[in-house]
Design a protein around this nucleic acid. Structure first.
Lengths: 206, 206
DNA sequence: ACCATACTTGACCGGCTGGTCAATGAAAGG
DNA sequence: CCTTTCATTGACCAGCCGGTCAAGTATGGT
């Protein structure tokens, strides 16, 4: 976006961002039309392109906005006291589940972004997700207690596996066409966490 | 497709199917153009629409073709003798890895189809995947030895979890933009299988 | 009141693409 | 040959959509 957009009054920014997020959550990148976004935001298309160089940059802006929204939601203070890997997982999971339960559109949009394959935005989005993962690792997990792990198991690997499970599960649910049921997801999560702990932790820490 | 397409000589069918598969593997549903497909197949667009009612039905035809191709590849005789859940997993995995290693485009196309979000084709594709999963379950796993499982673990659940892991892993790899490394995937697979066995099987069958 | 600047509009353009169709060619049958 | 039937072509149409721009409106300073 240009300078100009961030100078707008909060509520007008919000109004445009909401419209864009809405349309981008409902439709494919290609099918999500800027006409539609402008109309829902109650502004002309010309103005939309006055704020944003093109559709792609609007898309990426929405993605960045979503990211910062999720990050802002996590209370960074509480996690300082957590040194157990699985406690940390629980903490992160709970915070996010809470957020998604309160504002389901966030999850809906996040999933769209996560599964985008359109070549015009896929690779910049990829980079963002990789960054987010790295940052998450650094902030949350880099100084957890490795002593509890079996020597042959890398904590990062265990985290990745949990991500895969969630990823695959959500994808499957999306394919079923069902609304994402947060309670069911939490139940599954608890199962996976226990399985992973059994696999990753030494006997005495189970 | 119409009657007419299946009456075509094999090599011409192949030529068109190959072109379509190629384009559909490279691009989004929306971006994959019928002009392009016709050109690559060496026929006119008019003829393409003479064979197929519309782009959607061509897409689904390609999907069905891929499915039958994969199914035909599995040797159904050998699996009759397998009653151990994890042996069966190994068997299925090996067969598919082999296929994908020999013809990487199959995996590439399959992934595109698997992650399609375009509303014009997403839901029919979904249905196909669900069917495939059910069929796979019936053929491969419905009569495996449940005795070895801990009573609280459902075999189907364990299978689903493995699927989630593979799904998530492949998606992550795609996001990295890397070509899918089949050897790395097999190594990961072996890990997951062992983890799952540890979790799902009674002590004495580990 | 005037002007300059910034904001806002919506008509418009051009490119792309799914799908159609009248016309042409080729085969088959008599 | 002639005719009927089928296969094949490619020009064409209509709709959609990203992006532009000349023109209009509001704002604020002087």
């Amino acid at each position: 976006m240009a300078q100009t957009f961030s100078d707008l009054p909060q509520d007008k920014q919000q109004q445009i961002l909401d419209a864009a997020a809405e349309v981008f959550a409902e439709e494919d990148y290609k099918r999500a039309s800027t006409d539609d976004i402008a109309a829902r935001a109650g502004i002309s298309k010309g103005l939309l392109f006055y704020y944003f160089k093109n559709k792609q940059s609007l898309y990426l802006y929405v993605a960045d906005h979503l990211r910062s929204l999720v990050e802002r939601h996590l209370e960074k203070e509480r996690l300082a006291g957590i040194s157990d890997f699985f406690d940390m997982l629980d903490y992160g999971a709970e915070e996010k589940f809470q957020l998604f339960r309160r504002q389901p559109w966030i999850l809906k949009l996040a999933l769209r972004l996560y599964y985008v394959t359109d070549k015009e935005v896929a690779s910049p989005l990829r980079r963002r997700f990789m960054e987010m993962m790295e940052e998450m690792w650094d902030v949350y997990f880099s100084h957890i207690d490795r002593e509890k792990f079996r020597p042959e198991v890398e904590p990062r690997q265990a985290l990745d596996q949990l991500i895969y499970l969630i990823d695959g599960y959500l994808h499957q649910q999306m394919m079923r066409g069902a609304k994402i049921d947060m309670d069911a997801l939490m139940a599954e999560y608890a199962l996976w966490r226990d399985m992973l702990r059994q696999y990753a932790y030494k006997e005495e820490y189970q």
